Amino acid sequence: MAEQVALSRTQVCGILREELFQGDAFHQSDTHIFIIMGASGDLAKKKIYPTIWWLFRDGLLPENTFIVGYARSRLTVADIRKQSEPFFKATPEEKLKLEDFFARNSYVAGQYDDAASYQRLNSHMNALHLGSQANRLFYLALPPTVYEAVTKNIHESCMSQIGWNRIIVEKPFGRDLQSSDRLSNHISSLFREDQIYRIDHYLGKEMVQNLMVLRFANRIFGPIWNRDNIACVILTFKEPFGTEGRGGYFDEFGIIRDVMQNHLLQMLCLVAMEKPASTNSDDVRDEKVKVLKCISEVQANNVVLGQYVGNPDGEGEATKGYLDDPTVPRGSTTATFAAVVLYVENERWDGVPFILRCGKALNERKAEVRLQFHDVAGDIFHQQCKRNELVIRVQPNEAVYTKMMTKKPGMFFNPEESELDLTYGNRYKNVKLPDAYERLILDVFCGSQMHFVRSDELREAWRIFTPLLHQIELEKPKPIPYIYGSRGPTEADELMKRVGFQYEGTYKWVNP
């Protein structure tokens, strides 16, 4: 592979701008107003304001973009700056750019259920340069409990009458099928589907988006991507930290609602779906819905739930269990780990287990898709061969690698495990991989909904998990304890083995 010439960040961002501006969906010269509902909250200060700053800094926003914060707290732009700027990672050389960014910011205080507050917000936006005809993007960085009041008031008082209007809704989209349907029906009564952007930030990850290209742009994968060759698929999300004093919020939802029903299920769809007619948003989402419709409700015998306990040999936070978090209700049975087996009941995947695993306070930070292939028929190497695996590593250190057998150097035919490896950090030294939120917010500006969740996708996802969630809430089974920093409950490994996964433990990928 030829040595790549190092590029400056300015040059890299210039390439990104060229890609972005050559499309006809990006209205570079139009006025846009980006409204952050819930501007005083954690999500706004840690993710949304920093993301908008990065896009502005790199010249990736339309030229005439204004940012308006809205929340109940009586704040000023200076207050917003004070709480969000520490997350910007701005350099001293960017000081003038930073001043320009905050000059485009404003803030309006108001209630979430008060019509007069929204009329005041609308008047404020109209007073901005060309504000009355601007395109408006409303980001709901809010708890779902206020979605209905907020969307109703936005629709009645704050819509642009000339430009387009788009609304970005953060997960969780309800707690179960019934609450999700209620919320979807409410929002759909106010906005068209092409105006609604239900954001799952995992769909903005580079390697998640790469799944489609790997599958449908490489001839070698087509013939082997089926039940005849693939023994099982494992989708993993692991965090090495616990709730760390923020367990009160987590306890309301648990690990299945927080990660599995959305992030992991979306990745499953991209692995299992048929080739779409095109890369058009609805063509892709149509195929994802077909996959979900082929999955039956989760069966309790295919589920393992766990909850982390303190590690007596650990240090600091590792010595504390979930129930030691003062914000967690006493005696909570909320799971911090889950392993679930699903089956896609169609011709391509009949009988292939899709194993979804996620948890907190585990032994490493990792998100990946792992396809394990069947054993080689007619073994001539005296059971020395391990199964081939194709691994798409989402985070950290984005990579695609194939675990395969090669001859060990020497005189004899002794096979050993090795890999074919594409590590993004080595291959793409001159490429700026956008943060997931950067990519998705740019998608909203461009009107691309491919990486957002459609209402029928959402409904099918909740259909699969709601009976299990209701059973857990009714019966309150005690989750299996696992030690902070471990791989999780051993019962999860036993479940995976029972459905056909072979864990060798003899080879570990190392970032080159």
Rank of each mutant, 00 (worst) to 15 (best):
A71T: 05
I15D: 07
I167E: 00
D251Y: 02
Q178K: 12
R9T: 13
I224F: 06
H155C: 06
I196S: 00
P86S: 05
N218M: 00
I230K: 02
Q178E: 05
T65Q: 01
D42K: 13
Y147N: 12
F102K: 01
P92T: 10
I15A: 02
Q4A: 11
Y112L: 07
K82E: 12
I52P: 00
G204K: 15
D194Q: 05
I220D: 03
I154A: 02
A127L: 04
Y112K: 04
R104G: 01
A231R: 10
S160P: 02
S73L: 04
Y202R: 15
S29C: 13
S188R: 14
S157R: 13
Y197I: 01
K97S: 04
S29N: 12
A217M: 06
D194V: 04
S84T: 09
S184V: 14
W225H: 01
R17N: 09
Q119P: 04
Y197T: 00
R57T: 02
Y118C: 03
P143V: 06
K238W: 14
R219Q: 14
H201E: 03
F237P: 01
V77L: 07
R136A: 03
L235D: 02
F101D: 00
A231M: 08
S8G: 14
F34I: 15
K205C: 15
I220C: 06
V5M: 06
K46E: 13
F88G: 02
F102T: 02
G245W: 06
D194M: 03
K82T: 08
M207D: 14
L55P: 01
L60I: 11
A127N: 07
E93Y: 08
I199D: 00
I168R: 01
A217N: 06
V12F: 13
W225T: 00
N185C: 14
N126F: 03
Q22I: 12
L203F: 15
I15R: 04
V68L: 03
T91K: 14
F237R: 04
A39M: 02
G59D: 04
D114E: 08
E244L: 12
R104Q: 07
L16P: 03
A115P: 13
E99F: 03
T76D: 10
S179M: 06
I36W: 00
F88T: 02
N229C: 07
S179G: 04
V233N: 01
D176L: 03
L98G: 00
W54P: 03
H186F: 11
M37E: 00
A2S: 10
F34N: 01
K47L: 14
I162Q: 04
N135F: 01
Y139W: 06
T31D: 11
K46M: 07
D176G: 13
H32G: 03
F253W: 13
S8F: 07
L55W: 00
A127S: 05
W53I: 00
I230N: 01
N105I: 11
L61M: 03
D79P: 00
I255A: 14
D42V: 11
R120V: 13
E239S: 09
L190T: 09
L137I: 08
H201V: 05
A44K: 00
V12S: 13
V208E: 09
L130M: 12
D194E: 09
M212L: 06
L137R: 00
S157P: 01
V169I: 09
A103V: 03
R257V: 09
F237A: 03
E94G: 01
A2P: 12
E244N: 12
L98Q: 02
F253S: 09
T91E: 06
Q22N: 10
A134F: 04
I33E: 03
P62N: 05
S188K: 11
I187M: 08
H129E: 13
L142S: 11
A78K: 10
R227G: 09
E193S: 03
R81F: 05
G247S: 10
P92N: 09
C158E: 00
F56L: 02
A134N: 11
F101H: 00
D176S: 09
F56Y: 07
A6G: 04
F66M: 03
E3D: 10
Y107W: 05
R227N: 05
L98W: 02
R136I: 03
W225L: 02
P86C: 06
K97C: 07
D200S: 14
I234H: 14
E244R: 15
E193I: 02
H186C: 11
E252A: 09
I33N: 02
N122A: 12
R227D: 01
G248V: 12
L190N: 11
R215I: 00
P62V: 02
S189C: 04
K89R: 13
L75G: 04
S123G: 13
L20H: 03
R17C: 06
T243M: 14
I256L: 14
I33Q: 08
P144Q: 15
C158L: 06
N165H: 07
S179C: 04
I48P: 01
Q161P: 13
A109G: 12
Y147V: 15
A231Y: 05
Y112R: 03
R246V: 11
V233C: 11
F138Q: 00
T31A: 13
Q83E: 05
A231Q: 12
R9W: 04
T76C: 08
R198D: 00
E94Q: 07
K171N: 07
Y107Q: 07
K152A: 13
G247R: 08
L203D: 15
A149G: 14
F221T: 15
Q11V: 04
D24C: 08
W53A: 02
I187Y: 06
A134Y: 03
H27L: 10
R175T: 07
P172T: 05
Y107P: 01
G245I: 10
F66S: 05
G174H: 09
I199S: 06
D42N: 11
F87K: 02
S40Q: 06
G245E: 12
K95Y: 13
G245M: 08
Q28V: 14
L130C: 08
V213S: 08
E170C: 08
T91N: 08
F191W: 11
K205W: 15
H27F: 07
I196P: 00
L142N: 15
S179L: 06
G248R: 15
A134V: 04
I162D: 10
G59A: 03
G110L: 00
D251L: 00
D176F: 04
E244G: 12
T65N: 02
Y202E: 13
F216G: 03
H32Q: 08
E19D: 04
G248F: 11
F66K: 10
G245R: 09
D181N: 08
E239A: 04
I15F: 13
H27R: 12
S180F: 03
N165M: 06
F250A: 04
L203H: 15
R219L: 07
D113Y: 07
D58C: 08
S180Q: 04
F237G: 02
M212R: 01
S106R: 06
L177W: 10
R17W: 03
I48G: 01
L183A: 12
D200M: 11
E239L: 09
G69R: 00
D24W: 08
Y49K: 00
D42C: 10
M125L: 15
G248L: 12
I196L: 06
R104D: 01
I33F: 11
F253V: 14
G242S: 09
H201I: 03
F237L: 04
L211E: 00
E93D: 06
W164L: 05
T145P: 09
P50H: 02
A90V: 10
N64R: 08
S29W: 10
A231E: 10
T243K: 11
R120K: 12
E93T: 10
Y112H: 04
V108Q: 05
A115V: 12
M212H: 05
N229S: 11
Q161E: 08
V5H: 11
G59N: 09
N64A: 05
L211V: 11
K95Q: 14
P86W: 04
F102C: 02
Q11P: 09
C232V: 03
R104M: 06
G163I: 01
T91M: 10
H201K: 13
L7W: 04
A141W: 00
A109H: 04
